[in-house]
C-alpha cells in the first residue's frame, strides 16, 4: 500500500478510492455471477468455494504457463465446473440448493487447500493494471489511479448483463425460469437445463473474481486469501435487488468498506483495527436488516428463489 501520510487527512479518501477499486473487483464479478444464477431461481452459496478455487487455479496456471490471462481463463473454467456440480446435484428431486451450496463451499475450500499446497511460496505473473495517473507526479495519486483491467471489464459487464436480462431472448428465458416454473415449462424450456447454464456461467464469473484475488490484489496464493467475500457477494445481490447495475454500485460500496481498515492504518489509526476489518460484515448485516421485511416479499426477487419463499 502506498503511504499517503504525506498528504495528511486527504490521504484517507484517496486510499479509500484506491482500495475500493481493488477490493470491489472480486465483489463485482462474484455478485454478477450470483445475480445471474439467482435470476434463474437458484441460490448458489458455494460461490465462496468457487472464489477460492478460482484464486488457486488462476495462480497455479499463471505460474506454470507464465501468462496471467491464461490463469484468469482457467479460473473461470474451474468455476464453471463447480457451477455444473451444483446444478447437477440440485437438479435431482428433493435436493436443497442452500445445503448443496454450503457443501460446495467446504468442498471447494478443501480442494483448493489440497491442490494449492505447492503454490504458496512462488510468485506468478500479475495482471496488468492501467496507469491512469500518469499525469501526476504524486506517487499516491498514481497508485490510486492504477486500475486493473478486470475492474473495467467487470464494470462494463454489469450494464451488459442488465441489457441481456431486459432486452434479449436469453434474458427473458432466464427470468421466466426464475419467476415461474410453470410458465417456463409451458413454453417448453427445460428448467434444469436453463438453471444449469445460469449456474455454470455464474460460476465462471465467480472464478474470474477469485483469479483477481491471487493475481492482482492482495496477490499471491495463501489459504487466508478469501475471507467470506463469496458469501458477502450473495448478500450483496439481495441488497442490489437482483439488478446487475445495482450490483456494481453495491460492490463499490463494499469495496470502500473493505478498504477502510488499510486506509486508516496508512494514516496511523491502528486502534480498533479488527473492528474496522469487520466493517464490511457489519455493513452487510445492517443493510440486510434494513432492507428485509417480515411480511413483504423483497422487491425484485425472483419468485422461484428459495430465500424468498
Amino acid at each position: 500500500m502506498a503511504d499517503p501520510s504525506g498528504m495528511g487527512l486527504w490521504g484517507v479518501p484517496l486510499a479509500l478510492f484506491a482500495g475500493a477499486t481493488r477490493v470491489s473487483t472480486p465483489f463485482i464479478w462474484v455478485s454478477l455471477g450470483e445475480c445471474l444464477t439467482e435470476k434463474s431461481g437458484r441460490i448458489n452459496l458455494g460461490q465462496e468455494g468457487t472464489l477460492i478455487m478460482g484464486a488457486m487455479t488462476g495462480f497455479a496456471v499463471a505460474y506454470k504457463t507464465n501468462s496471467a490471462w491464461l490463469g484468469v481463463f482457467a479460473a473461470g473454467l474451474i468455476g464453471a465446473m463447480l457451477g455444473c456440480v451444483h446444478a447437477w446435484l440440485c437438479s435431482r428431486p428433493r435436493v436443497n440448493d442452500v445445503a448443496v451450496g454450503i457443501g460446495l463451499m467446504l468442498f471447494g475450500t478443501g480442494l483448493a487447500f489440497f491442490l494449492g499446497k505447492p503454490f504458496i511460496q512462488p510468485t506468478a505473473p500479475t495482471l496488468p493494471a492501467i496507469p491512469l495517473g500518469f499525469w501526476s507526479k504524486s506517487p499516491e495519486i498514481r497508485y490510486a489511479l492504477q486500475i486493473n483491467s478486470l475492474f473495467f471489464i467487470g464494470a462494463l459487464l454489469a450494464p451488459a448483463m442488465f441489457w441481456m436480462f431486459n432486452r434479449t431472448r436469453w434474458g427473458l428465458i432466464v427470468r421466466t425460469v426464475g419467476e415461474s416454473v410453470d410458465a417456463a415449462r409451458a413454453m417448453g424450456y427445460s428448467i434444469n437445463g436453463v438453471r444449469a447454464y445460469a449456474t455454470a456461467a455464474g460460476g465462471f464469473l465467480a472464478g474470474i473474481g477469485g483469479a483477481f484475488l491471487s493475481l492482482y490484489y492482495p496477490g499471491g496464493w495463501s489459504e487466508g486469501l478469501s475471507s467470506g467475500q463469496g458469501l458477502m457477494a450473495v448478500a450483496l445481490v439481495i441488497f442490489a435487488r437482483w439488478n446487475p447495475l445495482n450490483c456494481l454500485y453495491a460492490a463499490l460500496l463494499f469495496g470502500a468498506a473493505g478498504a477502510l481498515a488499510p486506509a486508516l492504518q496508512s494514516v496511523g489509526v491502528t486502534s480498533y483495527r479488527y473492528m474496522f476489518i469487520a466493517a464490511p460484515y457489519m455493513l452487510t448485516l445492517a443493510i440486510m436488516v434494513l432492507t428485509s421485511s417480515r411480511t413483504r416479499t423483497l422487491i425484485g426477487v425472483p419468485a422461484e428463489l428459495t430465500v424468498s419463499r
Partner: peptide
C-alpha cells in the same frame, strides 16, 4: 481431510434424493 469432508457432505446431500 477437508477434501474428504467436502466429498462426504456432497454425497450425503446427493443421496437425499
Amino acid at each position: 481431510v477437508l477434501v474428504l469432508q467436502g466429498i462426504i457432505f456432497l454425497m450425503i446431500l446427493a443421496f437425499e434424493t
